[in-house]
């Protein structure tokens, strides 16, 4: 069970609660989208809810709470924010271009031709079981 110091001002407790709940809710919505949406390229979008505002709200809550509790400015959460904002786009872009190549390789006609690969006419023949590939 959580112990709250009795000197913590009420407004800090309320604002921290709101930010933590909001961040957690956005993260949850993001992963629900990951389960619910029906193709890979749509599923790339919802988890970014968690990596933008989701983690942002929780980091803000943490900064506010610790700054008041420790009675000094606690801002090292900014580092995590910077790190996450730089790395998420990189991983997502890498992952999407990898997915494009893989879809191209099994001959999926619904995706555009990935960079550096031959055009439509030279695409490999679609595999017979290409609707539901297992790997």
């Amino acid at each position: 069970m959580m112990e709250v110091s009795p000197t913590l001002p009420a407004w800090v407790a309320i604002v921290t609660s709101i930010l933590v709940l909001l961040g957690a809710a956005l993260t949850l919505i993001g992963t629900i989208g990951l389960v619910r949406l029906n193709n890979f390229y749509s599923r790339v979008h919802p988890p970014t809810l968690g990596t933008t505002l989701g983690i942002g709200c929780v980091l803000l809550a943490s900064m506010l709470y610790f700054s008041v509790v420790k009675q000094r400015l606690v801002v090292h959460e900014v580092l995590i924010a910077i790190f996450v904002t730089i790395t998420t786009p990189v991983t997502l872009m890498l992952l999407v271009s990898a997915a494009l190549r893989r879809d191209w390789a099994i001959g999926d006609p619904s995706v555009p031709v990935p960079p550096g690969l031959p055009e439509e006419a030279e695409r490999p023949e679609p595999l017979p079981e290409s609707d539901q590939p297992t790997s």
Binding site: T52, M93, P115
Partner: peptide, 12 residues
């Protein structure tokens, strides 16, 4: 990419 709803795929 970090705005939900859009992802950068490739720039030619």
């Amino acid at each position: 990419t970090s705005t939900p709803g859009t992802v950068w795929v490739n720039f030619d």
